[in-house]
Amino acid sequence: MNAFRLVGDLCHLAAIVLLLLKIWKSRSVAGLSGKSQILFGLVFVTRYLDLVTNFVSPYNTIMKVFFLSSSIATVYLIYTKFKATYDGNHDTFRMEFLLIPCALLAIVVNHEFSPMEILWTFSIYLEAVAILPQLFMISKTGEAETITSHYLFALGSYRGLYIMNWLYRYYYENNFDVIAVVAGIVQTVLYCDFFYLYITKVLQGKKLQLPA
């Protein structure tokens, strides 16, 4: 494992910890898109089916189990325990606009036409766009809590670092997965607008607020 991959994974881990910390400390899921969290839950469920078929390493298993369980826990917290604080009126992005194209694309463009590979490919495509309901929600309300901004920054950095990892693996290990790389680039590009706001506002100590 190279440093980009490790730091990428740690950013992903940090993002999820920040998200749970925000919910736990504020006792509220205000400002969070339940739809994005459902999509991420679906991403992990469809991607980590290999937990039961392939053992890679303790690190790999622990991370997969953590991502899987934390994403399911987040969905649970939003829709049951802290439902009263969930801002469903602003979480209006239609999930089927993402689910259907990702499913169709996974059936057409994959490494191997088998159920496991199609589900893995679906998870890669879906992860690339799963943050859109959250970004859409921020664009509707015009603001985000600082800890939610930190969460999004860590989450966006993770796939950006994976791109560096893929470049490294291409040059030094002759390994290249076109599906993961293209989807990863799309995923990272979706965060660019947010990265700009994060650097120019949140890091200057201001709350993330969109111009009216």
């Binding site: 494992m1 392939n54 991370m63 191997e112 993961a180």
Partner: peptide, 10 residues
């Protein structure tokens, strides 16, 4: 196998 994706990456 060769066609399979990398199960190590998260």
């Amino acid at each position: 196998d060769e066609l399979d994706h990398d199960h190590d990456e998260l």
